[in-house]
Amino acid sequence: KRPMNAFMVWAKDERRKILQAFPDMHNSNISKILGSRWKAMTNLEKQPYYEEQARLSKQHLEKYPDYK
């Protein structure tokens, strides 16, 4: 399994927040909201998630050095 990218790292927690506020919302609508919010964020706001992506990628490479 591939490591999560920056968007997926961010969306994991954001999806939970949306589901808590709107428990009956369909997944497709949640995904649209998440995509819009991510696009509206600045690079500075996204930076911590890119850093986490890099950490996860490094960890994955160490754990699975032959992964293609």
Rank of each mutant, 00 (worst) to 15 (best):
R16C: 11
K1S: 08
K58H: 08
P65Q: 11
W10M: 00
E14F: 15
L61Y: 08
A21L: 12
I33N: 00
N43E: 14
P48E: 04
E52Q: 06
Q59L: 09
Q47W: 06
I33C: 09
Y50F: 10
K46V: 02
K39N: 11
P65Y: 03
A21Y: 08
H60K: 13
D13P: 10
R2L: 11
I18M: 09
W38N: 04
Y64N: 14
T42A: 07
K12V: 11
H26W: 05
P48Q: 08
W38I: 00
E14I: 13
Y50A: 05
N5V: 03
P65M: 08
L44W: 08
L56N: 10
D66R: 09
S31P: 04
I33G: 00
F7E: 07
S36G: 10
K68R: 10
W10E: 01
Y67F: 15
M41N: 01
L44S: 10
D13G: 05
L61P: 12
P3K: 15
Q47K: 12
R2K: 08
S57C: 07
Y49M: 02
Y49K: 04
K17T: 06
Y64D: 15
E45R: 03
N29D: 14
M8R: 12
Y67G: 15
P65E: 14
I33V: 08
M8Q: 15
Q53I: 14
N5Y: 14
I30F: 03
L56A: 10
F7H: 01
K68D: 15
Q20Y: 03
K1Q: 03
I18S: 00
L19N: 14
R16S: 13
P3S: 11
S31D: 15
H60Q: 09
H60S: 10
P23S: 03
S28V: 08
F7L: 02
S57D: 12
A21I: 04
Y67I: 09
N27M: 09
F22T: 13
K1D: 01
P48I: 02
M8L: 07
P65W: 05
I18N: 01
N29M: 14
K39G: 09
R2D: 08
S57Q: 09
A21D: 15
S57W: 06
Y64H: 15
Y67T: 14
R37N: 08
I33K: 05
N29A: 15
S57E: 15
D24V: 03
T42S: 14
S28T: 12
K17H: 06
N43I: 11
H26L: 12
K39H: 07
Y64E: 14
Q59N: 15
R16I: 13
H60G: 14
K46T: 02
L19I: 14
E52K: 08
L19W: 03
P65T: 08
M8K: 12
M4W: 06
W10N: 02
A11Q: 10
A54W: 05
P23N: 04
Y67R: 13
D24A: 05
E45G: 04
P3G: 07
E51L: 06
M25D: 05
R55N: 07
Q59M: 09
I18G: 00
K39L: 04
L61T: 13
Y49L: 04
R15S: 08
L34S: 05
Q53V: 15
F22E: 14
H60V: 10
K32C: 05
D66L: 06
I18Y: 05
A54Y: 04
P3A: 09
R16V: 13
H26C: 12
I18Q: 01
S57M: 07
M41S: 01
E51K: 04
H60F: 06
N27W: 13
Y49S: 03
A54D: 14
E51G: 03
K46Q: 01
K46P: 00
K46N: 02
R2M: 07
L19E: 12
H26F: 04
E51T: 03
M41W: 02
S28R: 12
K12C: 04
N27L: 13
K17A: 10
F7R: 03
S36Y: 08
I33R: 01
K1H: 06
M41I: 01
W38G: 02
K68M: 15
K68W: 02
Y50D: 07
P23D: 01
H60C: 12
N5M: 03
K39W: 03
Y50H: 03
A11S: 08
M8S: 14
L56R: 08
G35I: 13
A54T: 05
I18W: 02
L44P: 05
L19C: 08
P65V: 10
E45Y: 02
S28K: 10
S36N: 15
Q53S: 15
G35R: 14
E14P: 00
K63A: 13
N5T: 13
Y50S: 04
M8G: 13
F22V: 03
Q47M: 09
Q59P: 11
Y64V: 14
R37S: 04
K12R: 12
A21P: 00
E14R: 03
H60M: 11
P3Q: 13
K1F: 08
G35N: 15
K39A: 11
Y50C: 05
K12S: 08
Q20L: 08
G35C: 13
K39S: 12
R37C: 08
R15G: 06
K58A: 11
H26D: 15
E62M: 05
L44Y: 07
S57T: 15
W10L: 01
Q53W: 13
R55M: 08
K17V: 05
L61V: 14
L19H: 09
P3F: 06
D13R: 03
M8P: 01
R37Q: 08
N43S: 10
E51C: 04
K1W: 08
E45F: 09
I30S: 01
L56E: 10
S57K: 12
Q53D: 04
E14L: 10
P3I: 07
Q47R: 11
S36C: 11
K17W: 01
M25K: 00
W38E: 02
D66M: 11
Q53R: 04
I30V: 12
L44D: 15
A11L: 04
Y49G: 03
F22G: 05
N29K: 15
K58C: 07
P23A: 02
F7G: 01
P65S: 07
W10Q: 01
Y49T: 04
Y49H: 04
P23R: 06
I30G: 00
R37V: 05
M25P: 01
F22W: 10
S36H: 10
N29Q: 15
S28D: 15
K46E: 02
N5S: 13
P48A: 08
S31R: 13
Y64C: 13
E52L: 06
Q59H: 11
E51S: 06
Y50N: 04
F7Y: 10
E51I: 15
R55P: 04
Y64S: 14
Y64W: 10
D13S: 08
K68E: 11
W38H: 00
K12G: 07
M25L: 09
R15Y: 07
Y49D: 02
F22L: 08
N43G: 12
A11G: 02
M4G: 10
G35H: 13
K46A: 00
T42I: 00
R55L: 07
M8E: 15
M41R: 01
N5P: 05
P3R: 11
Q47A: 12
F7N: 05
E52Y: 04
M25C: 03
Q20G: 04
D13E: 06
P65N: 08
A6C: 00
N27P: 14
P3H: 06
M25Y: 03
Y67D: 14
S57H: 10
R37I: 03
S28Y: 05
I33P: 00
A6G: 06
M41Q: 00
A6N: 00
N5D: 14
N29R: 12
H26T: 13
R16F: 06
M8D: 15
R16W: 09
I30K: 00
N29C: 14
L19T: 13
Y50L: 07
D24I: 04
K58R: 11
W10S: 00
Y67A: 14
D66N: 09
P3V: 04
D66T: 08
W10K: 01
K63G: 05
Q59G: 11
S31G: 05
A11H: 03
Y67H: 05
I33Y: 03
R55H: 10
K32G: 05
K32L: 07
I30P: 01
N43R: 13
D24N: 07
N43A: 13
E45H: 02
M25S: 06
A6Q: 02
A11E: 11
M8W: 07
G35D: 15
N27D: 14
Q47H: 07
W10P: 02
K12P: 02
A21G: 06
H60P: 11
L19Y: 04
I33E: 14
E52M: 07
Q59R: 09
Q53F: 10
S31E: 15
N29I: 12
L44R: 10
S36D: 05
K68G: 13
N5Q: 07
R16N: 12
E51A: 08
K12Y: 01
